[in-house]
Amino acid sequence: MINIIAIQSILQSFVSDISDIQGATLVSPDGLAIASALPERVDEERIAAMTAAMLSIGERIGRELARGQIDRVIVVGEKGYSVLVNCSDDAVLLILANANAKQGLLFLEIKRAVAELVPLLAEQPKANLLT
């Protein structure tokens, strides 16, 4: 079984330990939330579906324009960042950060979180994602 509790706790501490990070959710490639630490006002189900759609479009654009393997898709607004990162074949990580976040540091922290998440995802055979 996928260790959702462990994943959840990584996401939670990621969000609470790093001041500019406001939320994180791990999503299956077909748009279902696996675990989340999101702000109250965010609708988890919708955001999970949007994350999957966005990454799939980002990947298609990357392929069309010969950008190679896509590791992340970034949406920058005046109030901050949404960063989508491919974690494994079975999961996409979405991170919300406020506008004060320094991009370099943000990506570094995300990389660390992904490194913690990947081993937990590898444990789980695909069929177990079935709900």
Binding site: G31, L32, A52, A53, D89, L129, L130, T131
Partner: peptide, 22 residues
């Protein structure tokens, strides 16, 4: 065709392997 099919992990998986996400 530009398709955005991904492996289905919801009840769609009982019907077919992939589903359109965008």
């Amino acid at each position: 065709v530009v398709d955005t099919d991904r492996q289905a992990t919801d009840e769609t998986a009982l019907l077919k392997p992939t589903t359109t996400v965008a």
